[in-house]
Write a protein that binds this DNA or RNA. Structure first.
Length: 118
DNA sequence: AACATGACTCCAC
DNA sequence: AGTGGAGCCATGT
């Protein structure tokens, strides 16, 4: 067989999406967290690209992924940014109007599969 | 193959 | 908390 060390982009994306779908409601994870969980090392940017490729009607909880600073990474003024903030608040997560979230309170621990306790 | 781009991250001010 | 610059990884031209 030829190159067996690299999987097609579509498969990598699918793997990333699978990890993202493991984030329980009421919790968030950073791009870096997802990358590490997916075995991509420092591929945080790769995670962003995978989420960008999601269809609009997906049921993958992409909104639970924020950057290392605990902030929404989608461009200011974009529909996605507004939608992400609304969906997070709908799950009981506090999000400031500037799109900031407390990682100390809501960051997902891969060992736990339950929603954040209030 | 070189260069630009981006839903990233770290560090210094 | 906000801003700017360098580093990082994969894609698209």
């Amino acid at each position: 067989m030829g190159n067996s060390s690299l999987a097609p982009t579509s498969e990598i994306n699918q793997h990333i999406w699978q990890v993202v779908s493991q984030i329980p409601p009421g919790r968030v994870a950073t791009y870096g967290d997802i990358a590490r969980q997916a075995g991509l090392g420092r591929g945080a940017r790769r995670v962003g690209a995978a989420l960008r490729g999601l269809p609009g009607k997906t049921r993958i909880p992409w909104h639970r992924v924020v950057n290392a600073g605990g902030a929404i990474s989608l461009p200011a003024g974009s529909d996605g940014r507004y939608r992400q903030i609304m969906r997070l608040r709908a799950e009981g997560i506090e999000v400031s109007d500037s799109g900031r979230i407390s990682l100390a309170r809501y960051r997902w621990d891969p060992g736990i599969t339950e929603p954040a306790a209030l």
